[in-house]
Design a protein around this nucleic acid. Structure first.
Length: 137
DNA sequence: AGTGTGATTGTTCGG
DNA sequence: CCGAACAATCACACT
């Protein structure tokens, strides 16, 4: 069944100028994270398939087939993505605040001021996933 | 030549 | 609280 899509979503592609200086793109959901890997596998096993929709459908179906435990690593990754995004958002909001003071719409030679992000270096990236055993029934 | 479309689900923001 | 929009991808079709 064709899902009645809620009408056209104006997908801002090239025509629309990016209103925001640096708008943080939304973090890929667990599904996308899984899809990224799935796409490779899918295309590898199905080099003939050229339709992206095919991968989407197959991926979606497979996704639903995954157990919570299987999705766990993907969700974990997505969760991290969200954390990073949250940070980006804060910077983005800050930028907006600052930008608002500068000029609203006129852009002339604007040198990008910016960038600084103090990346904390250290970082431990442990994946400590507590395993809760999920009984899949 | 260039860009929109199609399809999946999840996530996120705004009103 | 709910809805709408948008995230990647990639070949093809249309303007």
């Amino acid at each position: 069944m064709a899902p009645a899509k809620a009408v056209g979503k104006s997908k801002a592609k090239a025509g629309k100028a990016a209103k925001d200086p640096n708008k943080p793109k939304r973090p890929p959901s667990a599904f996308f994270v899984f899809l990224e890997e799935f796409r490779k596998t899918f295309k590898k096993e199905n080099p003939n398939v050229k339709a992206v929709s095919a991968v989407g459908k197959a991926g979606g179906e497979k996704w639903k087939s995954l157990s919570a435990a299987e999705k766990a690593p993907y969700e974990a990754k997505a969760a991290k993505r969200k954390t990073d995004y949250e940070k980006l958002m804060t910077a983005y909001n800050k930028k907006q605040e600052s930008a608002a003071d500068e000029d609203e719409e006129s852009e002339k030679s604007k040198s990008e001021v910016d960038e600084e992000s103090g990346q904390e270096g250290g970082d431990d990236e442990e994946d400590d996933e507590d395993d809760d055993d999920e009984d899949d029934d």
